[in-house]
């Protein structure tokens, strides 16, 4: 697989009230952004535990984005 074709798996923990809504708004207003993000909605960024992030890496994520 060449590096140009490579699509990283990015896991996103998005806060329901901030980044998740921002992602929604970005979709509504048709901003283009890379499709590599797999989103997990959390009710607050404070809910995200360090163990969640490491678990994400164990399960095969290449990068993890936490959005508050």
């Amino acid at each position: 697989m060449s590096k140009e074709e490579y699509n990283p798996k990015i896991l996103g923990f998005l806060c329901n009230w901030c980044c998740y809504a921002a992602a929604d708004a970005a979709g509504v207003s048709r901003y283009q952004y890379p499709p590599n993000l797999r989103t997990i909605r959390v009710m607050c960024t404070g809910r995200v535990d360090p163990a969640f992030v490491l678990r994400g890496f164990v399960e095969g994520a290449d990068g993890i984005f936490t959005g508050g």
Partner: peptide, 11 residues
């Protein structure tokens, strides 16, 4: 790993 902030209005 990255931790960032963007409000609901900051698409």
């Amino acid at each position: 790993f990255s931790l960032q902030w963007a409000s609901a209005a900051e698409a």
